[in-house]
Design a protein around this nucleic acid. Structure first.
Lengths: 221, 221
DNA sequence: GTCTATACTACGATAGAC
DNA sequence: GTCTATCGTAGTATAGAC
């Protein structure tokens, strides 16, 4: 569907930059940097240089370093929303236990993929870091995308484990939802346990399997 | 047991400083600051001021800001080791499945307590943060205290779930061990779900319960 | 062992030329 | 829209008095 013409346009955009290429380049560079080292640890000069832009470009496009950070957060929130919405809408309301379990597994699976896919590696780090010490707007933005999924998870748990109170359901939902983040947060420690430099796709698969079976056990009581 | 004499000594120590009171005060101030805001975000001037010491005291006692950070890590590693060793040694080798499950639960419970106790709140934040982007010496120090516990966990899992391969056991151990950290890492998001400003002891108890039952389900297949 | 004073570097933000 | 140049502030580190 994509002819040579469009490919050329895109190539030109990449090479010489049109529209807001600097703006987008700054965001593209900043996300992995903020994710890896944290907001304060990253300097505006380093970001600008890596993006091939002048220091003042940050102030021009985003007002301040913090503005750039927020722009990164918004960019990630959009991507995350689309990644999670795929799961939500391909299935209807779960009617019985089996459907509820399947839906939960697909949600947790989606989280696993988000946390492990190399494409999204940069911003999964960003999210985890921000989740740990939430700043103003970002937590609000992020929650707009996470809340509906969380609600669905709670609904499924209510179907599978009707004996649980609401606060117990919330707690369980948080645990299931949070498990995929364990492999992100404890990454360095885990790599040591496996005797490798860094986690590989094989280990991600192992995690997905174990998490999946744990979700089943948690719901099929 | 503490007479006026000792109280006076202590008062003198506080006021004029003897031995290494400034040194210890600097560590005591730095741990929660580094934990809350991260290494780069915390200023040496702020730490010194809060500790009632001069800026140069940091350079004198620890060589540099990074030296202070390492000293904090060592201090925490000691405390963590004692907190976890209580669990390890009060029980012998687990001989049957029931004993293994009980030992696992006590380990995970200990982690929960470490993650939630107000006393250790400051350094649980520090640990989680460091675990996320590990720096030189600290990860080595921390692992010396965590590895034995992790090994015990793997041993218990081998007893309960003999059908699992070694890499699967490691994965499961990491998940069980990591669950208590979920409530730390996702703290802000969780508080929103519960509709409170910050997590309260009630919520911590809820987590401990749900985690406990999840551990049982994971092992009692 | 702890303080004051200071040198040096790097940061974020801004002004103004093109 | 992007650059260069510069301002004020803050961080680390050191020298020297007490």
């Amino acid at each position: 569907m994509e002819g040579a013409y469009m490919r050329e346009i895109r190539s030109v955009e990449r090479t010489y930059g049109s529209m807001n290429s600097t703006k987008q380049e700054l965001i593209a560079v900043a996300i992995p940097e903020f994710g890896k080292h944290g907001f304060e640890a990253v300097g505006t000069r380093a970001i600008a240089e890596q993006a091939g832009a002048a220091l003042s470009a940050i102030a021009y496009h985003f007002g301040s370093k913090h503005g750039l950070y927020l722009a990164c957060a918004e960019h990630i929130a959009e991507r995350l929303a689309t990644a999670l919405s795929q799961v939500d809408y391909e299935r209807g309301e779960p009617k019985d236990k089996a459907e509820a379990i399947a839906l939960c597994k697909s949600i947790v699976d989606a989280m696993c993929r988000i946390m492990t896919s190399p494409e999204s590696e940069a911003w999964s780090l960003f999210i985890v870091r921000e989740q740990q010490n939430p700043t103003d707007a970002l937590s609000l933005i992020g929650k707009h995308t996470i809340d509906p999924v969380f609600k669905t998870l709670g609904h499924c748990i209510a179907i599978c484990r009707p004996e649980l109170r609401e606060d117990e359901r919330i707690t369980l939902a948080a645990l299931l939802f949070g498990m995929p983040t364990v492999m992100r947060n404890a990454r360095a420690g885990l790599a040591r346990q496996f005797g490798v430099e860094d986690l590989e796709p094989v280990h991600h698969r192992l995690f997905e399997q174990q998490i999946g079976s744990l979700v089943e056990k948690a719901l099929d009581c």
